[in-house]
Design a protein around this nucleic acid. Structure first.
Lengths: 341, 341
DNA sequence: GCTCTTGTTGGGAGCGCTCCCAATGCATAC
DNA sequence: GTATGCATTGGGAGCGCTCCCAACAAGAGC
């Protein structure tokens, strides 16, 4: 069943059916109704491949995830954002193709371009990765592939969507200051990740000399490192720059019999596991995961269709949700310095 | 850059280049080498859409995930299996399209067929879902869409890939019997899920009159339900039919001061978070997640290409990994009744 | 010598669309 | 009345492949 068949059934030309399918204005209401009725009656679906071949547009976008993304299940970021992107893509009438790439290996960019862009599988790319040390940004930029990074980037010319990490970090700093914190400790998995670094930058606006503990992405090793640090030294507050570290802070505090928030105040980023945050009474700066995903998808489609210029970052507001873990004297439900487009 | 261009550069015909690209045997070695060299030199990539249009094969498969899959991050099943499928798909030279569907809503099957199969986006489907109460199996079966379910199914005629749930459940039962367990409790999220039910069936071969506690997929509610049950009644062993329930058992046991394994023996299914299992010393029946994924992908591609008949289930062996949580007297590293192909 | 097979190559037709241009009808303006 | 514009419709060309059949050469068998 193809365009021509529908045309014959409806007594019009192939072109007219095509116009109806594509919502082209140049069809009389009368004809449109008739054609649409025939389409619905026979359950006709235009062939995506023929469309793509003729129009040079696939109506599909690629989501690039790092090779080992399942190792990062310590937080539920990946399923959550993938789900949200899937919903946004579907709403836009497009499809989502998953691309797994070892973005640290030199050929990554070329591989993705040749296998997915040049072969006409996707119109553009969404990049989800945990470090800026990638081999993706530059080749993609040079090849002119429409691309949105889901994370603040420091490669000039790239388009990205992210929360306001700097403002968020600063908010945590101000909160600590208001609470009279003297000696805070920042805990983070890696500072190679731009958003993480920016959060720390923001915090350091208020506490320039703060201690920082860099662990890695293993739960066990992070716990070990924190145990050791808290044995050696005494802090009155902890800023868990990456949210999945927060449960570890609780465990370590329990080990040393430190009460949260009385002896140790705690604030974290990435409030996407709300059930857990509520249970732990964890004060945190939220990630608008769903919003982030839908903005990214829309921006990418706009980029593909030439409605948006490349290189325009989108920054979403940071919001701090005060709960029990930071102690009292919480007045702030402050807003970050928004810089919407 | 297309076939014709390469043909001109290499001094052969379009057909010959096509044969080289598709690894067709009917090309002399001499010509093949020459053509391949030109292809490599200019970095030519065949257009996937033109190929699909001409051959009626997209070389893409669709992975159907349930609408709310991120809610099920209580275990890391989704990221893990998606990652493994992505790898398997890539190895097979194909691509993976993600499809999110509310498989409980009546139109699900028709929607997936019309939007992804009829429109020529994918050649076949992989189904990942948490209940058999779906509106997918029957329409897909009727429409003759190549489909593999990643979970034992009781709809006749469907092809599926799964571990041997029955044998696994029975193994846990035998282990309990060997350990002298008198009054076990089985905990599970829902028995609507066929694999879950089959695990219980297997367990009941040994303990026909076992108590069963059905909770749901919320961590908090599961904990509440178990707390209540263990307050009311005394058990000497727990079988966590779904692996993510195991940490809850530990929490509840700690609440009542019950030591594991001395006062309460514990065995679970789904040993895919090995780090956690090791830390908790959790005895469990493993899921061959990676193997499951690659078998499913290969089987689907075989189905699409007519190399495998539909309706043939693939059952992987169940293996029990004994650790501390079940107590001593562990002899079994038994194998389930394998029924390979 | 001839036919028959086998191995290799070339090119036409067509997959189902979109895009462009031409054609038509009809209302409006002079 | 004729010229001009706009709204609507139709059909050709072509997107870049695959598939099929024809063509040809070379060797085998009689």
């Amino acid at each position: 069943m193809n365009l021509e068949d529908i045309a014959k059934l409806a007594g019009v030309s192939r072109s007219t059916v095509s116009r109806v399918v594509n919502n082209d204005a140049r069809v009389s209401d009368e004809v449109r109704t008739k054609v649409q009725a025939t389409i619905d009656a026979v359950g006709y679906r235009p062939n995506a491949n023929a469309r793509a071949l003729a129009s040079h547009r696939t109506r599909a976008i690629g989501l690039v995830v790092p090779e080992d993304f399942s190792r990062f299940h310590v937080d539920s970021w990946y399923p959550l954002i993938i789900e949200a992107m899937l919903a946004a893509t579907r709403d836009a009438g497009q499809t989502l193709m998953l691309i797994m790439e070892d973005t640290f290996s030199p050929g990554a960019g070329k591989r993705v371009i040749s296998q997915f862009v040049d072969s006409g599988r996707v119109d553009g790319l969404l990049i989800l990765q945990h470090s800026y040390r990638d081999h993706l940004s530059v080749p993609l930029l040079r090849a002119g592939v429409p691309t949105i990074h889901i994370a603040e980037s420091d490669v000039t010319g790239t388009s990205w969507v992210d929360n306001n990490n700097l403002a968020g970090g600063e908010m945590v700093g101000r909160l600590f200051a208001d609470l009279g914190v003297h000696k805070p400790l920042c805990v983070s998995a890696t500072l190679e990740h731009v958003p993480t670094r920016r959060r720390l930058d923001g915090f350091q606006i208020v506490y320039p000399d703060t201690s920082v503990l860099i662990t890695n992405h293993s739960l066990a090793q992070a716990e070990e490192a924190l145990l050791q640090r808290l044995r050696d030294e005494r802090y009155d507050a902890i800023f868990a720059i990456n949210g999945w570290l927060a449960p570890i802070v609780y465990r370590v505090a329990a080990t040393y019999g430190l009460s949260i928030p009385d002896e140790l105040r705690l604030v974290s980023f990435d409030d996407f596991d709300v059930e857990m945050s509520e249970r732990l009474q964890l004060t945190s700066v939220v990630q608008h995961t769903t919003l982030l995903a839908s903005r990214a998808v829309r921006l990418l489609i706009d980029l593909v269709e030439g409605r948006a210029p490349p290189g325009e970052p989108v920054v979403l507001d940071s919001v701090l949700i005060p709960r029990g873990s930071c102690g009292s004297l919480v007045t702030a439900s402050a807003q970050g310095g928004a810089a919407e487009e």
